[in-house]
Computed example of a mutant assay.
Amino acid sequence: MPLPTGTSRRRALTGALLALGLTVAASACNSGANGGGAPDTIKIGLLASLSGTYEAVGTEIRDGFELYLKMHDNRLGGHKVELITADEGNGAPTAVPAATKLIKQDRVHVLTGIVGGGSVAAVYPLLAEAKIPFVGSNGRPELKDVSRIWTTSYLSDEPGAAIAEYVRDNVKGEVFAIGPDYQGGWDELRGFTDTFAKIGGKLANPDGKTLWTPFPATTNFTPYFAQIKASGAEAVYTFYAGNAAVDFVKQYAQSEISHLPLYAAGFLTEGGVLAAQAEAAKDIYSVLNYSPDLDNAENRSFVAAWKEDHDGSPTTYAMASYDAAAVLDKAIGAAGENPTPEEINNAIAGLGQINSPRGTWQFSPTTHSPVQKWYLRQVRQDGRALSNTVVGDLATVGG
């Protein structure tokens, strides 16, 4: 066929350029979560407390996710990953604007992380509106619609529920419940007190109601210890984390009730707070879904990789975030060549069992949180340092 000349040539060239432009535009529209990024790149938003009361927890969550990426060539499901981090701060007032930026401006495929249950509840409407999955890596409250909500750690009431029977069987007398007055504290203590009551345990608290301490304002716990002493309790159950955990444990060890056995959700002595508490934490019993001394292949690999870049052992926060990355690795790989948020979410629902440093677990089909084993730990001397040593198995909770 002869080449077009004159006007015909110009028309042909214009048509070719127009076709090329439409092809490029279509390619751009089909790439990324909501139209942004290269087709082969998955954008993941990681929201965690990188300042404030729970900075140490948020840092572990970030580092756990980044460790998995490092060990897998910065790819999940065969796709390059652009990880965009944001600071949750102390809760909802800072978490919501940070999440808004990740979802609406950065246009991430998936959101992960989040330390506070109150932050999860506040960010939840944004996730529902944008229709992107959330793979959380710390405790969360119960939510009405979990169709796009997944949690690799636990529901916030599960630690207390898992240890309640052990406390009932090992304390001869009533137990005093105390915790911080915010969403996380309410959930954590409710899990213990409700289960404890159902199985015949008795609280020493007046009227059987948990004693709440203002959060995050409380740094002096001495007046509350006086109330515990006056109650005649034979043991104490609590939940604190971060800086509050350090203050509580140090002051407890110096108080008039230091002889009372102290039981807690494992966050009381988890991670860097244990080093800060030092001898004051010795002998505390706690319940958690993970300990770095668990003997399985996944945990040995995880702990060894963690110690290459960090002083000390990994925490449950780091482990759950590492598992969030593992979940996304499998799901993104199963979601096709250019996965959408919806396809990723559907793939998560079909994953089945997850091999994890904590042991094998799987998502509950109803709560989208792990069905997993919980462990009883005690702070004991381990060489030159104190550690949370597993001393027994507790209940399998979830579903």
Rank of each mutant, 00 (worst) to 15 (best):
E174H: 10
V146P: 13
P141Y: 05
D169V: 06
Y182R: 08
P141K: 08
W186G: 02
T193P: 00
S156M: 10
E142F: 11
A235M: 00
E142L: 12
K198T: 12
A204S: 13
T193I: 05
I132Q: 00
F134T: 05
Y240K: 03
T210I: 11
I257M: 12
A245G: 13
L143V: 13
Y154H: 11
A130C: 07
A161Q: 12
V135M: 06
G160R: 03
A233V: 04
D187T: 09
L127P: 09
T210W: 08
G173N: 09
Y237C: 04
T213C: 11
V146W: 04
I257Y: 10
Q251P: 11
T238D: 01
T193H: 02
G136R: 03
T213N: 06
D169M: 08
S156K: 05
G139L: 03
A161L: 14
Q183D: 15
A128Q: 15
V236P: 05
G173Y: 07
P133Y: 07
I178L: 05
A177E: 03
Q227D: 10
R168F: 09
A235G: 04
S153F: 14
F215R: 07
F196R: 03
P206K: 12
K209N: 10
Q251S: 12
D145L: 09
K209F: 01
E158S: 12
T222C: 11
R190I: 08
T222Q: 15
P223V: 08
A217E: 15
G173Q: 06
P223R: 10
V249G: 06
E129W: 12
K131N: 14
W212I: 13
Y166F: 13
A235S: 04
L127D: 01
R140T: 08
S137E: 00
E158L: 15
L189E: 05
E158R: 12
N220M: 07
T213D: 00
N243Q: 15
A230F: 13
E129F: 08
K172M: 02
A197N: 07
R168T: 04
A245E: 00
L203C: 09
A204T: 09
G201R: 06
R148E: 12
I178F: 10
W212S: 11
L127V: 11
A233R: 00
D157T: 14
R148Y: 15
I257Q: 10
A241C: 10
G173E: 03
A241V: 02
A245S: 14
A226C: 04
E188V: 01
